[in-house]
């Protein structure tokens, strides 16, 4: 591929990303050393291929889900929208291990965290280790329990849901933090996310006083559209 003519035959696969990254790097290196006319012809071919495929994209057009727009605008607008996802089994174990330590700590202040299992603190561990850590727990009317362990100092919490029935198909559970400015979405959980035991980090509590749950259409809503079916006071 060192001959200029050979280089030009690679312009189309290059423009279509039909090359491994290592080949693309090779071509870029060769272009940097190639005569200006060759580099210009290569760039023109790449441009034409990409303009053509941009036109062809009319044939594969499909509407993205509406919530993607909300999420993107929220992301670039500096607000945080958090997708709650089930944590790994390891994370869950840590949560319960530290929760157990907390329970011990109630009776024997100070010794609980000696059994903290991993050296590098996770978000959950930092919350549990905070001096102002609090726990609120409540039953979900449709079955199961929700527990939030949170710290105002860390401005974060950990939500643990046990034995909560998954949402009906086409719907999600959406979490809302209610503060002075009304409800802010704290993420959604779909059927796949609601395991027998589900743990998620709530990274930004702000001035919220309540964590509330509603049922929303798939993908979630920008504001609650159904009555709150469960709520936990964050005090």
């Amino acid at each position: 591929m060192t001959e200029p003519d050979d280089l030009l035959t690679l312009a189309t696969p290059y423009a279509l990303h039909a090359m491994p990254q290592s080949d693309i790097d090779d071509v870029d290196r060769l272009l940097a050393q190639a005569p200006t006319s060759v580099a210009a012809a290569f760039a023109e071919e790449v441009r034409a291929v990409r303009e053509t495929m941009a036109m062809v994209s009319a044939s594969t057009a499909a509407e993205p889900p509406g919530h993607l727009r909300d999420r993107l605008l929220a992301a670039v607008d500096g607000r945080t929208v958090v997708e709650l996802r089930p944590r790994s089994t390891r994370g869950r174990t840590i949560v319960f291990a530290v929760a157990a330590a907390l329970a011990i700590g109630v009776g024997a202040a100070g010794i609980g965290f000696a059994i903290r299992p991993v050296p590098k603190p996770t978000a959950a561990e930092q919350i549990f280790a905070a001096p102002d850590v609090r726990t609120v727990s409540g039953d979900i009317p449709t079955g199961g329990t929700a527990t939030v362990v949170f710290s105002r100092e860390r401005n974060a919490g950990v939500l643990v849901m046990n034995n909560v029935a998954p949402p009906k198909p086409g719907t999600v559970y959406q979490m809302w933090l209610f503060g002075a400015n009304g409800p802010e979405s704290a993420g959604t959980m779909d059927t796949a996310a609601v395991a027998p035991s589900t743990t998620a980090v709530l990274p930004d509590l702000g001035d919220s006083k309540t964590l509330a749950f509603t049922v929303e259409p798939s993908g979630g809503s920008t504001a609650p559209t159904t009555p709150v079916f469960a709520a936990l006071p964050l005090v």
Binding site: A61, L72, L73
Partner: peptide
């Protein structure tokens, strides 16, 4: 400019997501 970003998104989203 967030507003411009939203309009750019609306004018290209179906092509991008579809591809």
């Amino acid at each position: 400019d967030v507003e411009a970003f939203a309009t750019f998104y609306d004018n290209t989203r179906a092509r991008v997501f579809g591809l």
